[in-house]
Amino acid sequence: MEPLYIEPSEFTPRVFFDPENSVFEISGFSRPENAVGFYKPLIKWLEDYEEQILAKNINFNKSNLTFNLKLTYFNSATSKFLLDILLLFMKFHSKGNTIEINWYYDEDDDEIFESGEEISEMINFPFNFIPITPNV
């Protein structure tokens, strides 16, 4: 399966879903004009990934998936889609795959940190909170 790479723009984040290494990453700033148009293809890609890769793994040892979220800002429409994406990872987890979710945040940025805490609580799954050095 081909990786999914989306270049960042002024309003949208960088996306890199790498099926070969089982690493998935969304980073930067997210305020898309058309949140549905930007995020639906990511969800579709992950659904295809489940069908084409995860469901075909019949080994005893399932996959170890890493999801890195390195967001500096996201609007409320984005938060709805982040939740939908995370719920898909929870579905992968319920099927025996190991999931690690890393939530990176600027150590001075309480808003992003608290958003991560809230989302983690919502999906009832612990995140690794990783502070990064501020550059603002």
Binding site: P32, E33, N34, S76, A77, S79, F81, L83
Partner: peptide
């Protein structure tokens, strides 16, 4: 966030 869908306009 858990109950309402995002509308085509992008409002959640």
């Amino acid at each position: 966030i858990l109950g309402e869908n995002v509308t085509q306009k992008g409002g959640a």
